[in-house]
Design a protein around this nucleic acid. Structure first.
Lengths: 134, 134
DNA sequence: TTAAATAAGATAATTATTCTCATAATATTA
DNA sequence: TAATATTATGAGAATAATTATCTTATTTAA
């Protein structure tokens, strides 16, 4: 069983606080405010362990960094093409998809994930502003 | 307009030859058999440029490496959880999804991508073998 | 209450990718 | 067509993200 150390507890709590899905480094910055001596390696190690143990979700979407999600039940994500932020999106999970895919593929299908791409409201504003200055 | 140099032509041809979607490094190995003096940087640079020009597709799925696809029209992918290989999957594109997502999200939705996860037939065999040895 | 196991923090190593820059190939112009 | 400007290449350095190593600290179990 995975021991719930102070570090792990704080990482988990900080992850639960946000609705965006932070990268290991973002989480490190958040956690460091409460545990200033924690190492970046500890954050990486524990995020990985907690994901393996099904306590959190590791989401691998576009962009060069892995992101983490405190919600483990199946849902989809949207990523801002401007700032890279990733959030949940409220589109019902299509349960039939795996069945449908199994019919046409030689793979033994395990699951699926949908990643939407878009522009978040903050970036929409920024873009509108910079457009108005010509 | 993007000049069609020998290097670019060979990269494109090699990418067209395979149905899996190779990483830059895999493509480098393939291309190097025909152009032994080509640099890895050239492969990266040109894949990026060709993706920007819509000649190929850069696919950012799970796993730590970007992958490239000679087919540019919208379609979905499946990734083997064992070997990491990525291939096309023959599931019809759900055109309504973007509309549906727009209704519930503050994002300005641009598009979507579905990534299936599964075990490819080669890895299924390997797993069955290793299981039979207990 | 000491031995064994597990975890943390510091830092080195690795991996994937991007950048820089001198040279080479190609295109444009006088 | 030679001179010049433009663009691309190859080699290697630099960077970013992540993982591995290793010593010390903390926790658990005998």
């Amino acid at each position: 069983m995975l021991r719930l150390t102070t570090q792990r507890q704080v990482i988990l709590e900080e992850l639960n606080k946000v609705k965006t899905h932070p990268t290991a480094n973002e989480l490190y910055d958040m956690v460091r405010k409460r545990l200033p001596r924690i190492g970046l390696g500890t954050v990486y190690r524990n995020l990985e362990l907690m994901a393996e143990n099904g306590m959190i979700l590791k989401i691998e979407v576009g962009g060069s960094q892995k992101r983490f999600d405190a919600t483990t039940d199946s849902h989809y994500h949207i990523r801002c093409s401007q700032c890279g932020k990733v959030e949940d999106i409220d589109v019902p999970v299509i349960t039939d998809l795996v069945k449908e895919a199994s019919a046409t593929s030689s793979y033994q299908i395990i699951g699926h994930h949908i990643e939407f791409t878009g522009i978040c409201s903050e970036c929409q504003k920024l873009l509108a502003e910079s457009a108005s200055h010509h």
